[in-house]
Design a protein around this nucleic acid. Structure first.
Lengths: 149, 149
DNA sequence: TATTGTTATACTCTATAACTATA
DNA sequence: TATAGTTATAGAGTATAACAATA
């Protein structure tokens, strides 16, 4: 057996959890590389895209939707605010809260982000047919919603 | 809209790459917790299970199969060797190589590992039917094999 | 008393660079 | 010149603890 023999499916690779963990990391790595051209990280992308969908929102809600601990989300928002893409505004209803919203510059960035994200996703999912991609997304979404964490 | 409204499927959550990344991290976290009772980390588990499937193998091949950089795999193997579960033996054919193999103590550990792994996986995949779990695994496996990295 | 946002800190995983010994 | 293994180190992501302001 030569050293370049492809690894046969073994016990580890028959684990769905292992495959999820590997592919999740790989997907994230690829996406991180694609975002480098805009000097952004996945957390930045997530915050901007969530704001685009949900409109202005308090920090903790944004953080939850992006899947980041609110404590680790502070510096992410700092960076976006420094670059003029989001603004934190005091919430008159609850003065503890900061309503975060996209600036016009942030809005203008969205189309680039969408193009970049969808291209990275197309590349990554290329080994699957269109139909398989749809099935995969539906299953992952069901799992994501059903997982209590 | 109250603040406890579940997040509607938005642009970010309609991305398969995002879901993969989130679920991969979540799967890994859950599995890490389950392994704590044996004072093991996922990398240790991966190495032992791969050895169980493949038999003795050089370090770099093991590392690749587990999905870990060979440089970061050294300390993982050190820990397993210290605890008496694997042995590094010089390869007479190529004296640069170390053949890694399970010790009898390592063999004896396998059934516990399998039970722990399959239970964690059952819990994590519980939101899906058996049939859906099978479909998901097949799609992930195809993607895993097809991804060039 | 609980929640929102913040800072500081530590730990794990991953990545980069440089080295040795062998091939 | 390339490969197998090793060591040291730095970075990003994530987690814990403690705090101020407000509810």
């Amino acid at each position: 057996m030569s050293s370049t023999t492809p690894l046969a499916p073994d016990e580890l690779h028959s684990s769905t959890g292992f495959l999820l963990s590997m592919l999740g990391a790989q997907s994230r790595r690829r996406f991180t590389q694609a975002l480098e051209q805009l000097a952004l990280r996945p957390a930045h992308y997530g915050a901007l895209m969530t704001l685009a969908s949900s409109g202005p929102a308090p920090q903790h809600q944004l953080a939850r939707s992006v899947g980041i601990d609110p404590r680790n989300f502070v510096m992410t928002l700092d960076a976006l605010e420094e670059r003029g893409w989001v603004e934190r505004r005091p919430d008159p209803q609850d003065r503890r809260r900061h309503q975060v919203e996209l600036t016009p510059a942030g809005q203008a960035l969205l189309s680039q982000l969408r193009e970049l994200g969808s291209q990275a996703e197309r590349d990554f999912l290329a080994p699957l047919t269109q139909h398989e991609q749809g099935t995969l997304h539906a299953l992952l979404f069901k799992l994501y919603e059903g997982a209590a964490e």
